[in-house]
Design a protein around this nucleic acid. Structure first.
Length: 965
RNA sequence: CGGCCCGUAGCUCAGUUGGUGAGAGCGGGGCUCUUAUAAAGCUCAGGUCGUGGGUUCGAGUCCCACCGGGCCGACCA
């Protein structure tokens, strides 16, 4: 039995991964790895729950690759790394999926269909693709405990969420407010920002009317203030005009009338005008103007000029028409001014009956009629069409309205400073996100619109008494005396009533909450804290590490931070790694409509998981986008793994040929190449650990890649001779290469878990090393810097020498008498390495100024010529062996037909020829002689014009083993 | 309109705290080495390091402006 069980000579990643995977499952390796480190210090990871109602995509592999590598790394440092999976189960996307399947287009239809059944379908739908998720997670080697995954719809999870909301409520941080939100009048619900972020929500160059309207002053009807708006339908609801106190305004004369507008906006005027007076906006404050329409009830404070800080002179007239219910600024301003706000538009987007001239019309359709009305009364100064960006409902394409609604809010603005401080304590990768995208977001923080007038979600646990308006926020099921196994979802929870102190029957408010709050609650809700697992949660908060894609900045990263800050005043995570987006080869976003979406299973079957993972780690720094295609992944990922595979295959081939097997002790080798590659290893270990400790997988992998390249292209090249069957003392080279490959596997284990384990196991014939994933990460050791620098010099000189050979037209196989190195003093052992690499007899070092250089002496002696010819012959025979498909070690008979000179070379070098080419018998013939029929493999070659015939045939003799030719 | 990221050889990308003649891989041309390798090495294509300023003895590397590409935001969590 050979010491090593050879793996297939050619790397077929998908096949190999399938084998390793089933082996892991058979060995329960994941469980064993956890078991082995159960006493270690915990390294806490939070899994951001995906929604399993859609198929996983390539971008999920990206995030999961990064999640996995840091967890495996920490585990190899001896940490206990439990990774509990989770599923996000609530929310509008789930509802929409069900609506689609039921062919429901509008919200009222859900009520007709029945909320109980609707929610039952939602619950089923959300786990529809869970198998697919589990399969993909396993396929890419992401070790995640999905058997004990938490689900946000579990009653225990909901109870913890309720507890947290009651905490906020008690602090006064959960309140009901009348706020403006983007609203779809057809679906009859406000939309979350998440939905506004859907493709197609914002459209550019949408045409809309731009109207400039006269607001005549009560005391001077010939003078008007001009205001401009792109939403004429809000004009019936006008309550005030806003100006900036510091802004310069002018009064101009145009014909009989006088107009007031900002000085910087005079370009709005049509025709000639004469500026009569200029004054600051403060002079306009309090001026009363004639209301445009008579629908709203009279109120003292209305229809006056007021001051606002949001007025600009970028567009319009520098005067902002203010309708309370249809703009965020408008609403806030009207509230500050004590104006009573009343809707002129119903929840269906149509004018209410009291808006008599336009009653029942959809507001957007009424715009022309409103314009015409104003024109007929001489109030329309100017009308145009403008093009701007406008939001639409991404489901039904209805233009959204900004519409004031009653809603529940979390007063995140109250803890803004704490959010900023806690965010600053987080280590972001890439670092600019902390103060950039996340920091800016927090700076402009608004209160969190928590409630959703929908069905499938965590019910808002607030009960209200219709009689005395008393409110109660519930923080546990016990407070409601719910029976065991009660489903706290709608519609069941809506049946639960409480008795008010006043004797009234309290009922729950109808809303559910934003499902993003669910996911932000996972640090405590997954453990049913504080009802259970108190100690566990307290020990495992904040997490050491989380990782999700960039789109979670304002999503999960924010909700985690907001909730942990408000509940515990600390960040929920200490380190966060944020990979950027996956786009197609040309840098375009992947979308179904564009047809450039990559199927993850197809990609994995073409490239293999390790290749894909490696490509993710190495191709760009975290934070840059990933331009992906199968070709690129193969080029960047599979190529690297193949190089490693070849190195491993080389070791196994020759170790088996030689009968070498790893010994117990590893003693420090003497040969400079051995010492050099071990120094490179030590250097790489230090680099990789340092990079991984700051969550920089990219730098770690690049360092490992350089090591593997150096191993293959420099160490192995130079060490071949010492590993051949005829070599005299191969132990040092074998054990060094063996050591380097084993440690490379350990270095790679977090990144390419399949290949690393496959090679590691092969190189551990005794079997005591069950898996690289039960190993520790290599220890950093000091590296011999002096040697590293010197070898750098040797490599540079080698390149130079080869370039000089090429310029002179002398192949490397032709030995030369001498090389002269100027300006560098090489030690004798490194001079020997150099001599070997560039095939010269002697290397001399002479002092010189400036940069080191090398010169070659091309003078050939007959002996050198003969040696060159012999090497040429050997080369030809090896080539013939290769084309004949003979493996290293397989014995063969050789026939040579050549000139007497060359035949003499063959006779003299017969010993070498036999050994290196595994030749048992040599038969010689004169130049031009035909190759006898006994040699099935034959060819001809030319050396300096002279024809040489070569014949080769498999020999019946025993294969030469143990260096015996 | 605002914020952030990117803009280095034909393509994809590296370039730590500013410092000796600016790199790798892929593709292409030429050559070489070799039975681990459909591999690797060398070499060629002479890269205004997006543009224009500035700081400095010295900038791809710092500052400003502009241009181009991408992401996010644009009143909402």
């Amino acid at each position: 039995m050979p010491p090593f069980q050879p793996l297939p000579p050619r790397l077929n990643l998908p096949e190999l991964e399938a084998q390793i995977l089933s082996r892991w499952e058979g060995e329960k390796l994941f469980q064993r790895s956890l078991q082995q480190r159960r006493k270690g210090k915990p390294f806490v990871f939070y899994e951001g729950p995906p929604t399993a109602n859609g198929l996983p995509g390539v971008h999920h592999i990206l995030a999961r690759s990064f999640k996995d590598c840091f967890l495996r790394y920490q585990e190899m440092l001896g940490r206990r790394v439990e990774r509990r999976g989770g599923w996000d189960t609530h929310g509008l996307p789930v509802e929409l999926e069900v609506e689609r399947s039921l062919k429901i287009r509008a919200k009222p239809e859900i009520e007709e269909f029945g909320v109980e059944e609707f929610n039952r379908l939602c619950r089923n739908s959300v786990m529809e693709y869970i198998d697919e998720w589990e399969r993909l997670t396993a396929r890419i080697g992401f070790w995640l405990d999905l058997d004990h995954a938490y689900r946000t719809y579990d009653p225990s999870y909901i109870e913890s969420v309720w507890w947290s909301l009651s905490q906020l409520y008690d602090q006064g941080w959960l309140y009901r407010g009348f706020r403006v939100a983007p609203y779809c009048p057809r679906c009859q619900t406000s939309l979350s920002s998440h939905e506004l972020g859907q493709p197609g929500a914002y459209r550019d160059d949408v045409p809309d009317p731009g109207v400039t309207v006269r607001f005549r002053l009560v005391d001077d009807p010939l003078t008007s203030i001009l205001a401009w708006t792109t939403t004429p339908w809000t004009l019936p609801g006008n309550l005030a005009l806003a100006v900036g106190e510091q802004i310069a305004y002018v009064r101009v004369r145009q014909g009989e009338e006088r107009l007031i507008l900002a000085r910087d906006r005079l370009s709005m005027l049509e025709g000639d005008y004469e500026v009569e007076e200029e004054f600051p906006g403060s002079r306009l404050l309090g001026l009363r103007y004639q209301r445009l329409f008579p629908y709203l009830p009279e109120q003292e404070a209305a229809w006056r000029v007021v001051s606002a800080d949001f007025v600009s002179t970028e567009e319009g007239t520098g005067v902002v028409h203010t309708a309370g219910a249809y703009g965020e600024d408008d609403l806030r301003l009207c509230q500050e001014e004590g104006l009573e706000i009343r809707h002129t538009v119903g929840p269906d987007g149509r004018f209410l009956p009291f808006v008599s001239d336009f009653a029942g019309q959809f507001v957007k359709d009424a715009d022309p009629a409103i314009e015409e009305n104003l024109r007929s009364r001489g109030l329309l100064y100017r009308s145009e069409t403008i093009h701007h960006t406008y939001p639409f409902c991404w489901r039904c394409e209805t233009p959204l309205l900004y519409y004031a609604l009653d809603s529940w809010f979390i007063r995140t603005t109250a803890v803004k400073e704490r959010l900023l401080a806690n965010n600053r304590a987080i280590h972001w990768v890439p670092s600019h996100l902390r103060d950039g995208r996340m920091g800016n977001w927090l700076e402009t923080l608004q209160d969190w619109n928590l409630s959703r007038a929908r069905y499938w979600g965590t019910p808002l646990p607030i009960w209200v008494c219709p009689d005395c308006q008393a409110e109660r926020c519930i923080g546990s099921f016990a407070e409601l005396s719910l029976p065991q196994g009660f489903d706290p979802h709608k519609p069941y929870i809506d049946e639960v009533t409480l008795t008010c102190d006043c004797g009234g029957v309290m009922r729950r408010v109808p809303e559910v909450i934003d499902c993003w709050y669910d996911s932000g609650a996972m640090p405590f809700a997954q453990w049913h804290y504080p009802f259970e697992n108190r100690e566990r949660f307290e020990n495992e908060h904040p997490a050491d590490y989380i990782c999700e894609a960039l789109d979670q900045t304002r999503g999960w990263f924010y909700t985690l931070l907001a909730e942990s800050t408000m509940l515990f005043d600390e960040p929920a995570y200490r380190n966060v790694v944020v990979p950027s987006l996956v786009v197609d080869e040309r840098g375009r976003k992947m979308s179904k409509s564009r047809g450039n979406v990559i199927d993850p299973w197809k990609l994995l079957s073409e490239t293999g998981s390790d290749a894909l993972r490696w490509w993710f780690y190495t191709t760009v720094k975290v934070g840059q986008e990933y331009r992906i295609s199968a070709r690129r992944v193969v080029d960047g990922g599979a190529r690297f793994l193949n190089l490693l595979w070849n190195a491993q295959s080389f070791l196994v081939t020759y170790a088996n040929l030689r009968g070498w097997e790893p010994g117990d002790a590893f003693s420090a080798p003497d040969h400079p190449l051995d010492r050099w590659i071990l120094a490179r290893l030590a250097q790489t270990v230090a680099e990789a650990r340092e990079a991984m400790d700051r969550y920089d997988a990219h730098s770690a992998c690049r360092a490992i890649q350089r090591l593997v390249e150096d191993t293959s292209t420099w160490y192995l090249r130079g060490s071949r001779v010492r590993l051949r069957p005829e070599a005299e003392h191969p132990e040092a080279a074998f054990s060094t290469l063996h050591r380097v490959l084993l440690d490379t596997c350990r270095l790679l284990a977090p990144f390419t878990p399949f290949t690393a384990d496959a090679i590691y196991r092969e190189l551990s014939p005794s079997g005591e090393r069950a898996s690289v994933h039960l190993e520790e990460y290599p220890e950093a050791r000091p590296a011999d810097d002096q040697l590293l620098r010197e070898m750098e010099m040797v490599r540079r000189l080698t390149e130079e020498a080869r370039a000089r050979r090429e310029a002179a037209g002398v192949p490397v196989r032709q030995p030369l008498p001498r090389a002269t190195v100027r300006g560098a003093q090489l030690s004798s052992e490194l001079a020997a390495v150099l001599a070997e690499e560039i095939n010269v007899r002697d290397v001399r070092c002479v002092p010189a100024e400036g940069q080191a250089s090398i010169e070659l002496d091309f003078e050939l002696t007959p002996e050198l010529r003969q040696e060159g010819a012999l090497r040429w012959l050997i080369r030809q025979v090896q080539n013939q062996r290769k084309t004949a498909g003979l493996r290293a070690g397989q014995p063969a008979r050789l026939f040579l037909a050549a000139s007497e000179t060359l035949l003499e070379v063959a006779r003299e070098g017969q010993e070498q020829l036999r050994r290196q080419c595994f030749i048992t018998h040599v038969e010689l013939g004169p130049a031009g002689a035909p190759v006898p029929s006994g040699y099935r493999h034959h060819s001809e070659a030319r050396l300096e014009g002279e024809l040489v015939g070569i014949g080769l045939e498999l020999s019946d003799d025993h294969p030469p083993m143990q260096g015996e030719p």
